[in-house]
Write a protein that binds this DNA or RNA. Structure first.
Lengths: 258, 258
DNA sequence: CGTGAGTTTGAAGCACATCAAGTCTAGTGG
DNA sequence: CCACTAGACTTGATGTGCTTCAAACTCACG
């Protein structure tokens, strides 16, 4: 009931993200590639120091914008690797299959983030990417991206930063799983989401998570029940307001200090 | 006592690795850069499909071969990022500092593996790299490496594979920390070490670990006591012989099936 | 307004952490 | 070369945070 009398002041990032693709046909899987220069999330996926000619080259990278329905796979484990993807709108989870069919969530991705980098080494994907809501992605053939990176130095550096960022993100995750207790994990998870929303121009204090408790638990290495209990406890401690998937962060300082 | 009557048949990989650098001056920090084409671990760090001219370019990348004494840092967290390093001989751990000075091990590296990729995004290192024994590394200025990767396509692809491999390694680690019990973690750790030694031409069944139980525990997200107990348990189950840091794998199939 | 997936909450059990000896080992100096 | 010592390792006893199992509740959606 806490959030009922305290309605969301800012629209959820994901609502906005959905608006973003409204012009795209509902069921259509493919669309003509739009210009990066006209794309709202371009600052997130371009180096940002390119001249007109270079920009045109970058535009040519995006062969296709694909819509992925909620629950559908962008790619599956063991699929051959050809493309990387940049998330234009919506959100994904990446999962690996455990023995006995149980799935482990290895990451959540939101607008501006890149998917598919795990496929480069073995020339096939090692995890699957599943849309948490109707989402759109730019499809970028990796060979083409490499060609452009050999031509345009800032683009090369940019790709390396994206890959390095992924390495850093994962080592933070290793840190979290190796050293934190359940309550700290959930707090860190919320702060991380908040920060990523913040850099995308959404509210960093109020948002609507698209993932279930079970997916959060899997990601954080705890059970869904423990995840749920930690949300309740953080709420009791007045650090967040949580009503299902609606989250409001009340004291990010205290969350970080846990 | 088990290993007393069953002496190591193959020399430990680390012993060999030490022999490898015997020609280098003991205390000397720097040496003239040797040719990659004459380096024993070249197949591990080169694409392997280069002509003579390209090989010369690759040779020019290695500005220096540095010796790092046991316990010394190759780089520390927050150091500015300029170089990546390829481990010629010896072994390292990468660590991040927890709050209150406790350190968390995020990885172990052996010959042929690359260090320092975490520094690209923020232009400074986020973890520290500490030698577990006297080790030698090739120092490669990252800007130079990027230049060469814009010139030589196979080299570019190779770098991307190295980075992707690091991403995959870390997601496997996330999987391990998120889903496995202590005994499985230790088993997976041993199998992983064994496989890496195997691809380097060392015995994949007998080796000498350079890391302490405390470092292993930190890496695997368990205490040193639990790590020790799991080594004992695996020994009781006749899956390994473990006497301190000497390890012999008796039943890798059963270890994988845990 | 019923249905089922998602969520919350409680009770009991267990795997691992913590605390505490005691033993072993490698490196050091006599 | 061997005794000495500090760090590394093993093992036991006890405590606890999380999992597991179970049941009830919520809410979106037909």
């Amino acid at each position: 009931m806490l959030l009922a009398d305290a309605p969301m002041l800012t629209p959820s990032p994901f609502t906005q993200a959905t608006d973003f693709v409204r012009r795209l046909q509902p069921g259509g899987a493919q669309h003509p590639a739009p210009r990066c220069s006209q794309c709202a999330i371009s600052p997130l996926c371009n180096p940002g120091e390119l001249n007109a000619e270079e920009l045109a080259q970058v535009d040519s990278l995006v062969q296709e914008v694909r819509t992925v329905q909620r629950g559908a796979s962008l790619y599956r484990a063991n699929d051959p690797f050809h493309n990387v993807y940049i998330l234009r709108s919506g959100s994904f989870k990446t999962v690996v299959m455990h023995r006995e069919g149980r799935e482990q969530v290895t990451g959540f991705q939101i607008a501006g983030e890149m998917l598919g980098l795990d496929g480069i080494v073995g020339e096939q994907h090692l995890c699957g990417a599943i849309a948490l809501e109707r989402s759109t992605v730019c499809v970028i053939p990796f060979e083409l991206l490499e060609d452009v990176c050999r031509e345009i130095k800032p683009m090369q550096r940019h790709l390396h930063k994206v890959m390095s960022r992924e390495i850093v993100r994962e080592s933070n995750m290793i840190m979290l799983l190796g050293t934190m207790r359940a309550e700290q994990r959930v707090a860190a998870f919320l702060l991380n989401l908040a920060e990523r929303y913040g850099t995308r121009g959404y509210s960093a204090t109020e948002f609507n998570m698209r993932m279930t408790r079970s997916e959060i638990g899997s990601y954080l290495g705890i059970t869904l029940e423990t995840a749920s209990r930690m949300f309740s406890r953080l709420q009791q401690e007045r650090l967040v307001q949580a009503r299902g998937k609606q989250i409001r962060i009340l004291d990010s300082g205290a969350l970080a200090r846990l």
